[in-house]
Structures are given as structure tokens and as C-alpha cells.
Amino acid sequence: MAQLGKGIKILLVDDEPNIIQFLELGLLNEGFQVASATDGPEALHIAESFLPHVVILDIMMPGMDGFEVCRAMKDARPVAVIMLTAKEEVEDRVRGLTLGADDYMSKPFSFGELLARIHARIRNQFPQLMEKVSIGPFSIDAGNKELSYEDRILDLSPTEFELLKHLVLNHRQVLSKSAILDQVWGYDFGGEENIVEVYIRSLRDKLNDRERRIIRTMRGVGYRVDIR
């Protein structure tokens, strides 16, 4: 089981019980500490003692809406806010981001995408919480730039480390070559996408993944790490 969420607190705020239940079960399974609220005042009260790192916050709630809650949360303490809405209106997105929201998702959404966005917020705003992470057979020590598979430290170049770390942290997602280039090599990388294939081949060799069961090629889409 992944231990990526260990020690990380997430507060869910939504007036739809089925959404709360769905997210709570998934996040608890990932190892996060989870609290929930069905309205704004309750969320602010819980946050005072729970001290969440990430708040998943619905915009459309009766009474105190998500915009007001976001402003109050941001004024009180450092916290990452991911806002949810059933709308896709640009005005809502702009207003939320102006009030300090860190990310924005429209309903319906996949749990895997939300999880990836939570990981991104933690990496950016609370990197100390991700210094050492265990996910299935993988262990990542970001401070020492070490990555282990089945208790064996892999001999990786700096780029190989960053690539495998990115694949493992996003193991629920199929990652395209272009997305990998942006996140690992950087947006200003001027080389060819085929460089990703070269590094994937090298990682498979170091993982003894001859049958490609660890790093899967999803034809026409990209790559995904399988965690068993």
C-alpha cells in the first residue's frame, strides 16, 4: 500500500454526502488523514484544530459559499486549496484563483486526477512532507536523491531519478511523452520526444523489467508504472 499520504491532512468540504464518502474512502486508502465538513462554518471550525495541509473545497454550497471559505482559510494559515465546481465558467475559475485558490477542478472528475493534483500541491507548498515516501515496492528519498525498488537502491542518473520519481508518484495516471518532457526536462527543453523512450529503456534495464510489467507502455498514449 502507498504511504505517500502519511502525515498529510486533507479537509473535504462539500454539501453532497456521496462525494464526501467517495473521496474519504479513496484518500484514507492512500494513507492521508481526512476530515470532512458539509458547509463553510463547520469547515472553518474543524480547520482550527485539524490544521489541514490541503482543502478540497466545493464552490456551490448554501449559505457561506466556497469563495468565502477559501478567503478565510487563506487568511488563517498556510494551506493548499483545490476548488471544485459543477460549472466550467471562466469567471468562477478567475474569482477562485484571485482569492488564493491553488488549483481548480470541474465536476465530474476522476479520483486519479484529483490525487495527482493533491501530490502536486504538496510537492510545491509542503515539500518537507514528501522527503521520504514509500509506494508499493518503491521508496523515494528526495533529500538524498535515492530511489529503491524492493529494498535495492537503484543506480540512477539525476534525470533517471527525476523521471522514475515522476512516474511512481503519478502511478495511477498514464503520462504522455509531452507531459513527461514538461515535468522532468522542463518546458524550455528543445530536444525530441524520443529522449523519453531512451530513458524509459534504461530504467527498465535497471529495474530488470524485461517483460515491461513495471513500466507499462500504453500504446498511442504514454507510460504508466504498475504498483502491485
Rank of each mutant, 00 (worst) to 15 (best):
F22M: 13
E192P: 07
Y187V: 11
V90F: 12
L169P: 07
F126R: 15
K6P: 00
A101V: 03
S134F: 13
D209M: 00
L154E: 11
D188Q: 13
F67K: 08
V168E: 01
I195F: 04
I227C: 06
E131S: 11
G5C: 03
V174T: 14
P52W: 14
A72P: 02
A35W: 12
G220A: 09
L203D: 06
I180Y: 04
A179I: 07
M83R: 13
G7H: 10
M1T: 14
E211I: 12
T98D: 03
E193N: 04
D226V: 04
P17M: 11
M218L: 04
L115C: 09
L28P: 05
N18D: 09
F22S: 15
E131T: 14
V79L: 14
G26Q: 09
I59R: 14
H119E: 07
E24P: 02
D102S: 05
Y104R: 04
D155K: 05
I82V: 12
L164V: 07
L4I: 03
L167P: 05
P17L: 01
Q21M: 13
E146Y: 05
N144V: 09
A43C: 14
F161D: 04
D151K: 10
I19A: 06
S134M: 07
I135K: 02
E30L: 11
I20L: 08
I135Y: 09
K132T: 12
K74H: 08
E30I: 13
V54K: 13
I214C: 00
I180N: 00
V54G: 13
D103V: 04
L57C: 00
I122M: 10
Q3D: 10
R93G: 00
P52M: 06
G26F: 13
E162S: 02
G191K: 05
E89W: 05
V94Q: 09
I215Y: 02
Q183Y: 09
L28F: 02
D65K: 07
L51T: 09
Q183C: 06
R216H: 03
D15Y: 01
V90G: 00
A80E: 08
F161R: 05
K177M: 10
G31E: 14
R93Q: 09
R123A: 13
V133P: 14
E131C: 12
M60K: 00
K145S: 13
D182M: 03
A37G: 05
I10S: 09
L12K: 08
D226P: 01
D39C: 15
